[in-house]
């Protein structure tokens, strides 16, 4: 009897010890639900990308992935929280272009370089649009009108400061008035009613209006034509060497172990290529743009270089 009990206790002890050593190795990551901090409110574009990514990552990691919305300070609040989370790979942050602009503006409590960037998943180039009733029909028309009447045309900005228009103005040396709005929807409404002359928005924000015949697309600020707008030229094609757009990717706190970063990177790559993700992004007119850690970091560094002169001038 006694021997049996001893044997039983030994087994329990061995099991307990093996369980402990397992935890130390981290080889079982992830063994509990992961959360993705989305630094904007539910219902926006960043939220949509975050949610579909969470859905697809869940299948790759065999763990629940939940979206946690943390709105505030144009994204500063959520990104700061993600940066200061435990570096154990269970709190990921959906970073957006604001990760570059906010530190440049001086309204973020962190530096762009603080994050460890894992993968970029989405890139939305800015699209020039005018009302369907406008006399402006091409990007050349727009440029000529601006040159003939400096500072007269009105631009409906979906956010301030507006990086798209500032980059465009810097590259072409034209002048126009910026009228700021809270988001693309009210700005587009103003274009439709004739209050402002042109706008620069993401493809998903204008697609319905272009198809519906309310807006005309003049140009895309991207390297290549956008897959949803095959007949809309890029600015580069027209000899204006500037690209601008917004991007969204996943970053983690800087001391996250390499092993976890590798696991996440592989899972993200698979998730972005999954049918579910591709279908959702295409039907929502969100551009898919996968970049691994090095490429993502390179993109961020380039963006800092592009935007620094703009914010210095302001």
């Amino acid at each position: 009897m006694k021997n049996n009990l001893l044997f039983f206790l030994l087994i329990v002890l061995v099991l307990l010890l093996s369980a402990c050593s397992d935890k130390k190795e981290r080889s079982d990551y992830p063994n509990k639900p992961i959360s993705i901090i989305v630094p904007f409110a539910a219902g926006g574009g960043t939220d949509a990308v975050g949610r579909v990514l969470a859905e697809t990552l869940k299948e790759e990691l065999n763990q629940d992935v939940v979206v946690v919305n943390k709105d505030g300070g144009s994204g500063a609040l959520g990104m700061n929280e993600g940066l200061n989370a435990k570096a154990d790979g269970y709190t990921l942050t959906m970073v957006t272009r604001e990760v570059v602009t906010l530190p440049l503006l001086g309204t973020a409590p962190f530096k762009t370089e603080d994050f460890r960037y894992i993968s970029n998943v989405n890139y939305d180039p800015a699209v020039f649009v005018v009302s369907a009733d406008s006399e402006i029909n091409t990007i050349e028309d727009l440029l000529n009108t601006m040159k003939e009447n400096p500072g007269k045309l009105k631009f409906g900005a979906s956010a301030v400061p507006n990086t798209y228009s500032s980059q465009f103005a810097l590259a072409t040396d034209v002048e126009f008035q910026t009228i700021p709005y809270q988001g693309a929807a009210p700005a587009i409404t103003e274009i439709l009613s004739g209050g402002v002359d042109f706008g620069l928005y993401s493809p998903g924000e204008v697609k319905a209006h272009i198809e519906g015949g309310n807006l005309k697309a003049l140009a895309v600020m991207a390297e290549d034509r956008f897959s949803g707008f095959h007949d809309v030229p890029t600015l580069i094609e027209k000899g204006i060497n500037v690209t601008s757009g917004t991007y969204r990717g996943i970053a983690v706190p800087p001391d996250t172990p390499d092993e976890i970063v590798n696991t996440l990177e592989k899972a993200l790559k698979k998730a972005v290529n999954s049918d579910k993700f591709v279908d959702f992004m295409n039907s929502s007119f969100l551009g898919i743009d996968y970049r691994g850690p090095e490429e993502f970091k390179e993109m961020i560094d380039n963006d800092i270089n592009n935007l620094t002169p703009i914010f210095k001038n302001q």
Binding site: A48, A208, G212, S283
Partner: peptide
């Protein structure tokens, strides 16, 4: 609006 787009529908007169 996002739900409309996902199903390939364009709100508008059409």
């Amino acid at each position: 609006l996002g739900a409309f787009l996902i199903h390939g529908l364009q709100p508008g007169p059409k």
